[in-house]
Design a protein around this nucleic acid. Structure first.
Length: 478
RNA sequence: CGGGAAAUAGCACAGCUUGGUAGUGCACCUGUUUUGGGAACAGGGGGUCGCAGGUUCAAAUCCUGUUUUCCCGACCA
């Protein structure tokens, strides 16, 4: 990269990674704080990234047979309490409405922390035969969880998400659904966000309240901590029993439905910011960037410059690209810094010097490299460059992930890796929750997932010495 | 939810110790000259000092409470 001037407004990652993150969130105009703890304002630029994610996923959901619905924001306390594990898991972080107008409510209303119970109540009403199955619903909404520690996008009292809720005739169908949707998320990481996710199953301790099995996509952040980025849950028939969602089967007997739910949230923005960002600010993967190409005219007053810039803008828009031209009277240097801070993948400089040779200068945000492109080649070169940037960003993140996934064969080794290097530590595990708890207590790391690839790296659990049952990835987590 | 720090113009901060007319830089507005890595000069606008009480003739400043943010722990997507 050229020796571009460091932006003094952003704290360097090396100095204070947490402060760097906060600086980027605000300086790139992704969000602002409101006056209520943990409730943030998603500013247009940040919301636009979420919209790209929505567009991508909504299409995938519909392609795989899901329909969008909208459930109420409030849940009656009696309904909320029907499934025991679920209540215990969520009750401590619920916000509750106790007053309506001037009247104290006899029954308190819970602001949804998640909508399982609402979907269950509805499904119980509309399903009576196997012919009514499956139902594959999805909801885009926000949920509220009263968090003690909050950080923009990573943990908020309110966050935006989608929650898929499906019910099926057979266990196999439900299991297929959760694995299929996990794969949709995984591909989103690869194709849209340029983030290599690690996929696998959660342990009993880490699984969702009320679920039989929970699967997860985990991303590794540059500070060595893992970020749970999305989950899919197989509920088995637990909720169906509690909420009486039964259907008359092909055998003319009543059966509970097999149920799933799955979701990703605006936490993904946090993953994008951290995985790709650098000391000059945000670095957005091209396919999720609200603006993919910014055109900066140089010496706009010179004959033809602005017209040529506008012409280029039109040509690129015709290709379906998201293009912005900045003809404000800030200096070019100011604009360069501004769009670097905002992470725009490609910058096209249109100035008299290059135009004299029918060229433009193109700058790549991800590695700072500049190249000259013939005007006539733009249609060919720009989309190719965007694709190249995506691949480079993915590879960079993958290289980091691989080089920060370390095997531990003893508990001492395990602790040392967590202290010195961070990242994922792969270790054998006996399956006993006591060992997970001990690890948590000793190192503050948690089991992130049991990866699908279960090739053993030992015979015993290094923590207790008992026979090992599973390969587990441990890490400190957000 | 515990322990620490902070809150003064959009942003970064000074002023507070020792109470007495609210300041600086950047940003913003106007004009001129500029424009290939955060331009220069001149002029100008903007703040009930987080909020609520208290002490005082007088509070940004002292006292009490409260809210929010950041950091470190415990809890969670």
């Amino acid at each position: 990269m050229a020796d571009i001037k460091k932006n003094e407004a952003i704290t360097a990652q090396e100095v204070d990674f947490a402060q760097w993150y906060t600086d980027v969130c605000r300086k790139a105009e992704l969000m602002d704080y409101s006056s209520i703890k943990g409730f943030i304002i998603y500013r247009p630029y940040g919301y636009a990234i979420w919209e790209q994610i929505q567009n991508y996923l909504d299409k995938k959901f519909k392609e795989t047979g899901h329909e969008n619905v909208y459930m109420p924001m409030l849940i009656s306390s009696s309904l909320f309490q029907k499934e025991k594990d679920h209540v215990e898991g969520f009750a401590p972080e619920c916000a509750i409405v106790t007053k309506g107008g001037n009247n104290i409510l006899d029954d308190e209303l819970i602001i949804r922390p998640t909508s399982e119970t609402l979907f269950c109540e509805h499904y119980a009403k509309i399903v009576s035969s196997y012919r009514d199955l499956p139902k594959k619903y999805n909801q885009w909404c926000s949920v509220v969880r009263w968090e003690k520690t909050t950080r923009p996008f990573l943990r908020g009292s309110e966050f935006l998400w989608q929650e898929g809720h499906t019910i099926h005739e057979t266990e196999l169908e439900a299991r297929t659904e959760v694995l299929d949707m996990l794969e949709v998320y995984n591909r989103m990481g690869r194709d849209l966000l340029a983030i290599p996710f690690t996929t696998g199953q959660k342990t009993e301790k880490e699984k969702f309240a009320g679920a039989k099995e929970t699967y997860t996509i985990e991303a590794l952040m540059p500070d060595g901590k893992a970020l749970q980025s999305g989950t899919t849950h197989n509920f088995g028939t637990g909720f169906a029993e509690a909420f009486n969602i039964r259907f008359l089967g092909r055998d003319n007997l009543l059966h509970p439905v097999h149920q799933t739910s799955w979701g990703v949230s605006t936490r993904l923005l946090g993953a994008i910011i951290m995985v790709h960002g650098d000391d000059n600010g945000l670095v957005l993967p091209p396919y999720v960037a609200p603006t993919q190409v910014v055109i900066i005219p140089i010496q706009m007053q010179k004959e033809g410059v602005l017209n040529k810039a506008r012409e280029i803008e039109k040509r690129l828009i015709t290709l379906g690209l998201r293009v912005k031209i900045d003809d404000s009277d800030h200096s070019p240097g100011w604009k360069f810094s501004e769009y670097e801070m905002k992470g725009v993948p490609l910058r096209i400089e249109v100035g008299p010097r290059d135009l004299a040779q029918d060229l433009v200068t193109v700058g790549k945000r991800n590695d700072g490299k500049k190249l000259q492109v013939k005007l006539e080649d733009l249609e060919k070169t720009i989309p190719t460059l965007l694709n190249t940037i995506h691949d480079e960003m993915y590879k960079k993140a993958l290289t980091y992930l691989l080089s920060h996934t370390t095997e531990a064969h003893s508990y001492d080794e395990f602790k040392e890796i967590l202290e010195t290097k961070g990242g994922y530590v792969k270790m054998m595990w006996c399956g006993d929750e006591a060992c997970e708890n001990k690890i948590k207590q000793d190192t503050n790391a948690t089991s992130r997932c049991m990866p699908f690839n279960q090739e053993p790296i030992g015979d015993v659990c290094p923590v207790c010495g008992k026979k090992a049952k599973k390969v587990v990835l441990f890490a400190k987590a957000y």
